[in-house]
Write a protein that binds this DNA or RNA. Structure first.
Lengths: 198, 198
DNA sequence: TACAATACGGAGGGTACCTCCGCTTTATCA
DNA sequence: TGATAAAGCGGAGGTACCCTCCGTATTGTA
């Protein structure tokens, strides 16, 4: 459904490709279990691979995170299209943002890093932004067209705000949803705007 | 102006007190210059003190951060009372939140940690929360009484949301203020609420 | 099969964290 | 003031992690 494939540095030689897959899988597990500050040596061990192999393929921790994030980003985007098909303009946007927060809460630090990433400039993250932006803008523009969201708002601002919600280390799902209530209310046209448009 | 003094573990013996002060001063400088991930050994060196002395006084990095934060917290609280004296209910709340964000942006990681702290449970942070809560609630309750903020909102939710804004590593002041625009709009009673109360 | 290109892996050097304990300073009291 | 106990000091050193480098092993190709 996304128009631009996310970049992938998976190598072609058989052994290298096998180790690449093992490393990404091990990193995904380890990050989910112990957070993104799991030692890279631990990940290499899980993958049954030498530390040198890990570093050759992923020169930095960020590079490894990137590889893990590809799937997640794809999932975030896909859900946007799903909601667009099933719900009204505002409800689809809200459902998407709530699913984004819910996902972030469940995979704490992983998604926190992802949110920080929305401000970064690497080639990878730029591509991710393009995809997320495309998916999210569909929802946002529909809501704007329906007059249920203020027209001057920008998607990236909304995502940064929503992403910030998930940054707290001890954020419960209930609290996160209360914060999101405030944000959703903040997206709607104000009383004054409505009066002016009549 | 705050009713509860923030806790302080400054020791009484002359040499220990001197070293305590040196360490906090060195930490404040170092955190401001290089962020909160400055090595503790670097801070000990700046303070002209052995690493053992630092660890005896501050068993963790967090403990050292706490000592540095006391002044900042006090400043945040004081400003709340200042705005309360000079501005109307909603404007005072908005001014305080904007000053909070502005402060957070200028001292990036330091304030980011502070925000995370609002969810922590240490004795120190509990005391900080009490003070911030008292100062902020004054503003929030005035705004609620004036009918410019929805009555069901909780201060801590608002602060977590506002704090989340500052978590992004590359957040400009303009963007932060745009995000805050959304939040401020989200605090106001909705069109429906207003209609119902008439 | 032979060979060139590519990849593997772990030893090792560097840095930071934190603990432990022998030595030094301070406060107290006669 | 001088002796003594209590408190504090500091840095060596053990542990963990980061990352690089290079000799060895594997793979793809002709």
């Amino acid at each position: 459904m996304s128009t631009q494939p996310l970049p992938c540095t998976r190598p072609s030689r058989a052994d290298a490709a096998r180790n690449y897959d093992r490393l990404v899988a091990a990193a995904r597990e380890a990050f989910a279990e112990h957070g993104t500050d799991t030692s890279l040596e631990e990940i290499a061990k899980r993958a049954g691979v030498g530390i040198g192999t890990l570093y050759r393929r992923f020169p930095s921790r960020t590079a490894l995170l990137e590889a893990v994030y590809v799937d997640e980003i794809q999932s975030v985007c896909d859900r946007a299209y799903g909601f667009a098909d099933k719900l009204g303009p505002f409800d689809a946007l809200e459902a998407w943002l709530r699913s984004f927060v819910g996902y972030s809460i469940s995979k704490k630090s992983l998604a926190g890093e992802l949110t920080l990433a929305l401000g970064k400039d690497s080639e990878f993250f730029t591509a991710c932004k393009v995809n997320v932006n495309e998916a999210g803008s569909l929802l946002l523009n529909r809501a704007k067209a329906a007059g249920t969201v203020r027209p001057e708002l920008e998607l990236m601002d909304i995502l940064r705000l929503v992403g910030g919600i998930t940054m707290g280390r001890e954020m419960s799902a209930e609290q996160a949803n209360r914060l999101l209530d405030i944000v959703m209310a903040g997206l709607k046209p104000s009383t004054a705007d409505r009066a002016a448009s009549l």
